[in-house]
Amino acid sequence: MADSIALVIGTRGSPLALAQAHETQRRLGAAHGFAPEQLPLQLIKTTGDTIQDRALSEAGGKGLFTKELDIALLEGSIDLAVHSAKDLPTVLPEGIVIAGYLPREDVRDVFISRRAKSLRDLPEGAVVGTASLRRQAEVRRLRPDLKVVLLRGNVETRLAKLDRGEVDATLLAMAGLRRLGLTDHVTAILDTDDFLPAVGQGAIAIAARAGDERVLQMLRLILDAQTGYALAAERAFLTVLDGSCRTPIAGHARLVGGELEIRGLVLRPDGSDALEVIRRGAPADAAALGHEAGLDLRSRMPAGFLDT
């Protein structure tokens, strides 16, 4: 086995981002016989990591977590970038492609509180903290009597704020908690029938330079086809709706009995109304299914639907 570096993996420096990068590193090492030192991690601080005082929707949206990694890829200082799939913008910079996805984790959101056993059990007027406009809208849809406030920071920071009593409850992704070994904090798991997740939730996406066949070929051994179909549908759905951090959109695709099913949801920011769609078809038609689902919702959305 050669001692030289095989691939440089770019990642943000948060605990969750590092957990995802290490998972990618382990899978690549196992697939190709590389030692960890042959697959070094390069930590890159993104604009999104530095903004803690306001919602990302007010600062520019999803690209805030990818811009600096994109630059590093295009400049050649890293060979691939590991992302939470739900952080990726719908349109990537020219020269960068999504190589694929690792096998998907649990897609569900979880409820965490020291005051109640479930979202429905919170007392009237209780404070729920979350940075996600989708989660804010879905909470308000189910419990319009609750007060929903901005809660920024990484997973550990949000849990610490909950423990200090700054909020009565928060919502996080089960996938992130599993990757961090923090599932003991979970109070209740939210069923996707009641609380549809974000597009891409639970999936680790790997970006690379377009046309870099050496890297793309090496990655193919660790990528998951089923997750690829699901994300192709979900991202096509999001693209039609021009989805960003400024839009309360949820979407989840999965294989059911050989067919791909996508469920989509768009909500008024105050949760007072929502439009839903379901499409089913062949996995090979994933992107078309997502596109059709998005067009369906867009055609039914009245003017001003997304206004606060």
Rank of each mutant, 00 (worst) to 15 (best):
V97R: 13
V97N: 05
I98D: 13
A99C: 12
A99G: 12
A99K: 09
A99E: 05
G100M: 06
G100S: 03
Y101E: 15
Y101K: 10
Y101P: 07
P103C: 12
P103E: 07
P103H: 09
P103L: 06
R104Q: 08
R104C: 10
D106G: 01
D106Y: 07
D106R: 08
V107D: 07
R108L: 02
R108Y: 00
V110A: 01
V110R: 05
F111M: 03
F111C: 02
F111R: 02
I112H: 00
I112P: 02
I112C: 02
S113V: 00
R114P: 10
R114Q: 11
R115L: 14
R115H: 15
A116M: 00
K117V: 07
K117I: 06
L119I: 10
L119T: 02
L119D: 01
R120V: 09
D121W: 07
D121M: 05
L122A: 04
P123G: 08
P123N: 01
P123D: 03
P123C: 04
E124S: 13
E124M: 12
E124V: 14
G125Q: 04
A126N: 01
V127S: 02
G129L: 06
G129M: 02
T130I: 05
A131P: 13
S132D: 06
L133V: 07
R134D: 12
R135G: 08
R135M: 11
R135S: 15
Q136A: 13
Q136L: 15
Q136W: 15
Q136G: 10
A137Q: 09
E138P: 14
V139N: 09
R140V: 11
R141C: 10
R141P: 08
